[in-house]
Design a protein around this nucleic acid. Sequence first.
DNA 1: CCGAGTTCATTGCGGTTGCAACGAATATAT
DNA 2: ATATATTCGTTGCAACCGCAATGAACTCGG
Lengths: 139, 139
Amino acid sequence: MSFQLDEFLPYRLSVAAAQISRRFAARYAQEAGLTIPEWRVLAHLDHSGAVSVRDIHARVNLDKSMVSRAATRLEQAGLLRKDGHQTDRRLIVLELTDEGRDLMLRLGRIATQFQDELLAELGEDGPALRRALAQLSDG
Amino acid sequence: MSFQLDEFLPYRLSVAAAQISRRFAARYAQEAGLTIPEWRVLAHLDHSGAVSVRDIHARVNLDKSMVSRAATRLEQAGLLRKDGHQTDRRLIVLELTDEGRDLMLRLGRIATQFQDELLAELGEDGPALRRALAQLSDG
DNA sequence: CCGAGTTCATTGCGGTTGCAACGAATATAT
DNA sequence: ATATATTCGTTGCAACCGCAATGAACTCGG
């Protein structure tokens, strides 16, 4: 018998991820026209406080260049500030503005509600999905 | 408390999918330098026989333009043939060459082995992951 | 028939992405 | 001390992607 793409885990994973990203993007499009990298930078900053580009790059699975460009766009939109680091002048410290925090408050609610809906759809497979994704990401 | 990107399902899903795609691409890179669209087209043709661009587009979650371009590249590489449909001359029938089938035989083995390794890593969460991905893709 | 509407594959285009190169700043080794 | 190596953020570039427009082929209603 020949190979079945339909049953292939990497393929299923990729399709599901694309589908969910689309559904979620449609949700927050009403509140703000953010790209996925912008959303990730914003969300990470909201919960991490002031950190450098490199820190986000490492933690959020985004290329340095994407963090840099997303930060520039978010700065122009008035959602974050860029400051020089006190002692290490190579670093740039990113921090949300009040406006950025306000937006994340609204987006956070939308995200949480969306996730609740997903978990409801998944039923009892939800926890196993979480464990599996963690395992696959580390592998 | 503020929003936690780390725990957010769409984010975890996207990170896991990217990670697994990278791991898998590294595996088959030795056999062939294929892009992901090329791999999907090849794999689908292997198991479906001769079908049209539109058919692949519908079943494999790829934009028509990507199927078209991938098919052109695979044709130049001698892995598939493009023929006109007998009665409907709008359709283009794609079909693997012998060389293409040979390659898929090797790639199919690599893919199957890779998936077996993943399932071993996942342990008893594997079936739940499958169910969850199916649910999320349809949702 | 035949003309409006639909389906099919390709192509053009703008935006996005990842990689590599760069310059500036800092760390390290001798 | 100072030359070398490393780290950091930005930028240039080429490949890639998704969407819309195109043109060719088919369908269907009258």
